[in-house]
């Protein structure tokens, strides 16, 4: 619960969204989003499916294009300029719900690919970093296997290590545990908690409320493309203000 007491008001913002809007055809998926993410801040985004939470974080590294408003990452405005997009993607790591490891490459090659090709790092250095990260996610012995030979939990830990290999300043997690068998959720969350404790700036879309309680500085609730409510986790769970938030929490916490 340590996170809730932190005062982040003097910390600079690393991600700024101002009046961000996006549509999928006629469907208004992001509606006037304003958000500041402070350096080192951990934000958990939750909300019902179709609420736009995944789209929100996918806009931050331009996997989705926002159609109106300003989005600035690390001082770099996100525009159609390919240079800017590439610069931002180097600084922002992403972990997907379905892992998205490259099945034709070994675990080690999955990790070293971006450092070697994007950062032009010598292969040996990249492999050293990769091995130290695999050790950190506790699967160094799997380095020479292929993704298909690993369990879901192991694959997701590899995916986290792969994103970290680029030494990103910000990490985006898009429902990282939703595709996992229940017994594997913990091993992935443990790695994420560790990462949070080390000070990484994290934006996590998840329904793991235990994780939110443990590490989040702020929980954001989204519904129908809007940020409906945001608060420190303690207050968010204990005392939700909005009716929609109460309804949602009632639904997902019923079984916990």
């Amino acid at each position: 619960m340590a996170a809730t007491a932190r005062d982040l008001s003097n910390v600079p913002s690393v991600i700024t969204l101002r009046g961000v809007n996006k549509w999928f055809g006629q469907f208004h998926v992001l509606s006037d989003i304003n958000l500041d993410v402070k350096e080192g801040e951990k934000i958990v985004v939750c909300g019902p499916s179709g609420s736009g939470k995944s789209t929100l974080i996918r806009c931050i590294n331009r996997l989705e294009e926002h159609q109106a408003g300003d989005l600035v990452v690390h001082g770099v405005p996100l525009t159609n300029d390919v240079k800017n997009i590439e610069m931002i993607r180097r600084e922002v790591g992403m972990v997907f719900q379905s892992f998205n490891l490259f099945p034709h490459l070994t675990i080690l090659d999955n990790l070293t690919l971006a450092p070697i090709w994007v950062k032009k790092m010598p292969k040996k250095d990249a492999e050293e970093i990769a091995m130290s990260l695999l050790t950190r996610v506790r699967i160094p012995e799997q380095a020479l296997k292929y993704p298909g030979q690993l369990s879901g939990g192991q694959q997701q830990r590899v995916a986290i290590a792969r994103a970290l290999c680029m030494r990103p300043k910000i990490m985006l997690f898009d429902e990282p545990t939703s595709a996992l068998d229940p017994e594997m959720v913990k091993e992935v969350l443990d790695v994420m908690v560790e990462l949070a404790r080390e000070g990484m700036t994290m934006l996590v879309v998840t329904h793991e409320m235990g994780f939110a309680r443990a590490v989040a500085d702020r929980v954001i609730f989204m519904d129908r493309g809007e940020i409906v409510e945001q608060n420190e986790p303690e207050a968010f769970f204990a005392n939700p203000q909005n009716e929609r938030t109460k309804l949602f929490l009632g639904q997902i916490l019923r079984h916990h």
Binding site: N61, R62, L63, E86, R89, R90, V92, G93, M94, F96, S98, F99, N100, L101, F102, L113, A114, W117, V118, R162, A163, M166
Partner: peptide, 15 residues
């Protein structure tokens, strides 16, 4: 190929 393969490559900053 699943869309995720393209997205993962994009997210890593590959051109």
């Amino acid at each position: 190929l699943p869309k995720g393969q393209f997205e993962a490559a994009d997210a890593m900053g590959l051109n």
